[in-house]
Design a protein around this nucleic acid. Structure first.
Lengths: 172, 172
DNA sequence: CTGGTTCAGTTACTATATAACACGTGGTGG
DNA sequence: CCACCACGTGTTATATAGTAACTGAACCAG
């Protein structure tokens, strides 16, 4: 096993930076990024693919043998509230929020509009943040008297890499 | 109990029409809308609000005492494939597809793009089908090399009726 | 020290979804 | 006619996802 278990020694640079940014963000929000929460966040960020709560739980048990479902879910709830991760509803899984990685001083600590693109072939999940989509949605909602709060936008499709592979094969 | 149990006698007109349209649609697709599938579809349509699989199961048991989870899920899978219902991922629940209600001869038997507006206060769930949203999404996806298949778009917000109620009260 | 608040441990449970196998029925081809 | 297959359904068991409710430790304020 070379992937980090929370020990600073084996932690890749990007992850360390992201955790530092998360810490700063929590400080500003008056929230505590405790050891448990940091561990769960690290596991989500390491994966780079959506991970289910129970997959996270399994990994977490390596560092925290007593961990049970509520252990993970409480940490996930916290991270969701802080906007450090997102939930992918279609997969019942969690991913790190790309926005949270960059440390924007004290700007926009709010939940930003976001969309997921999920490749049906390879499972790659990409987060984008497209204003045109958000606007179109807000307008369409307004047209029927609806005021938009939080939007879940998840597109199942095919990523460039997988599309390229298919055109090379004679099959499909 | 005055709501229909599948007996034609107690069935409202709209429901009967929707079921006939569904039947026609299945015929064209070469799929069988069996008794079980029709019963489940009727239950979904009657509700007019998203219903979970187990809520449907409970209702179904009135007509089909032996019903078990797979009974419902298989019927739901069929109805989803035929585009007769949609799943609301955020609620793990199912609603009738508004488009399927209208019988369009043989036009567009495909899955149409759709969006859900879910009122956080009263739970009202409205389906809309906004092309601008679909286009914006397709473009945003194309920009990162993604080809859109099926899109899940679910907005949590506040409906006109609930918004009005709140402005009338001094509280919030 | 007392009492409140926040976080985490623990047990038990509810809710959602699927696997795997058995059975019947209606075709189709030998 | 029979063997076979595809399909829909019944049935049992199990997997996966999420929550309730109570416990105790740590911390801080009065």
């Amino acid at each position: 096993m070379t992937t980090g278990q929370g020990s600073a020694a084996e932690m890749p640079k990007g992850l360390a930076r992201a955790l530092a940014a998360a810490e700063a963000r929590c400080l500003r929000a008056g929230a505590q990024l405790t050891e448990l929460r940091r561990q769960v966040l690290a596991l989500v960020l390491e994966a780079e693919q959506p991970l289910g709560a129970y997959a996270l739980l399994d990994k977490l048990k390596a560092q925290r043998p007593g961990a049970a479902p509520p252990t993970v879910y409480r940490a996930l709830d916290f991270l969701l509230e802080q906007g450090l991760i997102h939930k992918v509803e279609r997969l019942n899984a969690f991913v790190g929020c790309v926005e949270a990685g960059h440390d924007h001083g004290h700007e926009h600590d709010h939940h930003h509009p976001h969309q997921f693109l999920i490749c049906g072939d390879c499972g790659a999940t990409v987060e984008i943040s497209d204003d045109a989509v958000a606007h179109a949605l807000a307008e369409a909602a307004a047209r029927v008297g609806f005021r938009v709060g939080n939007a879940t936008v998840e597109v199942e499709g095919r990523c460039a890499a997988c599309a390229a592979q298919i055109t090379q094969r004679p099959g499909a």
